[in-house]
Design a binder for these strands. Structure first.
Length: 271
DNA sequence: ACGAAGCCCTGCAAGC
DNA sequence: TGCTTGCAGGGCTTCG
């Protein structure tokens, strides 16, 4: 579920319930995640106040007391605000109980996510220190992408999804942005002009911003209830539409695998 | 340095 | 109906 827009939507959804609140209790039911949940988390953050709820790439950063809880939702994770009385269900691995009777509840069926405690500035954490710029920030522009891509032989789609180049562009939005920009996903990153990167950068931005605006709508009531997946679907021009006609030129959309991931494009519009 | 592949895990749909 | 297979929105790690 979590692409960058949904992580940002989660951040916005939980922030008002968390910021300024004191933690009264932490319950770790299952610590087996991508990496084990930091041992002793209960002691480390218990009784401290949540001061901030930030995001870097697809990591949520909860400022608590003197440190930061780094949370990643992996591929199937979610973070919800529920009532203290709500019984935990399957895959509800961690509860952060807040003063006032609400609980920040972490659920992740596939356990690809993580919850890691970090005492210092999270910027210096190994997982965060080498990440590329934010796709919606100023650093991400045509010039940057052009420079980074020279002599790169990898497919532009893989390049776009590489977190060391730019963060937050997952499989869905890579497919969408490339279609909107008219760029073939298999084209070598180093063989794309500055002009075309200009277009691509604009479309990455546009598609993410649309999704964030929409993510708000999609998951408007995810707090307290079930955030239903797949509502973006109707807006997606190519993802999940292999074999269907291109909305621009009616050519049949082609589906291939690129770097183990499903890739859909229009052989006519994308060159 | 770069690029491709492997792997972590559960759930679900499709095919036999 | 029940089994097996493949695939899923991520990304670190390993290998060549």
């Amino acid at each position: 579920m979590p692409e960058l827009p949904e992580v940002e939507t989660t951040r916005r959804g939980i922030e008002p319930h968390c910021a300024g609140k004191r933690v009264t209790q932490v319950v770790v039911r299952d610590s087996r995640m991508r990496w084990p949940v930091t041992p002793g988390l209960e002691k480390l953050i218990g009784k401290n106040r949540i001061t901030s709820v930030a995001r870097r790439a697809k990591y949520l950063l909860l400022g608590i007391g003197e440190g930061t809880l780094i949370v990643h939702l992996g591929m199937s994770g979610s973070l919800r605000i529920v009532d203290k009385t709500a019984a935990p269900g399957k895959h509800d691995h961690v509860d952060i109980v807040l003063e006032g009777g609400k609980v920040l509840r972490y659920n992740d069926p596939r356990r690809f996510g993580c919850l890691l405690w970090h005492q210092e500035d999270p910027i210096n954490h190994p997982l965060l220190s080498r990440l590329g710029p934010e796709p919606l920030g100023n650093e991400f522009d045509a010039d940057y992408m052009y420079r980074q891509s020279r002599r790169r032989k990898a497919a532009v789609k893989a390049f776009l999804m590489d977190g060391h180049i730019v963060v937050g562009v997952g499989n869905i939005y890579a497919n969408e942005a490339l279609h909107r920009a008219g760029v073939h996903p298999s084209r070598q990153a180093g063989r794309i002009s500055r002009r075309r990167y200009d277009r691509l950068v604009g479309e990455v931005r546009a598609v993410l911003m649309n999704a964030i605006a929409d993510g708000g709508t999609t998951l408007r009531d995810f707090v307290g209830s079930d955030g239903k997946p797949g509502y973006f679907r109707q807006q997606l021009a190519v993802y999940g539409r292999g074999g269907e006609p291109c909305q621009t030129c009616a050519t049949t959309l082609k589906e291939i695998r690129l770097g183990q991931r499903s890739t859909v494009f229009c052989p006519e519009c994308q060159t």
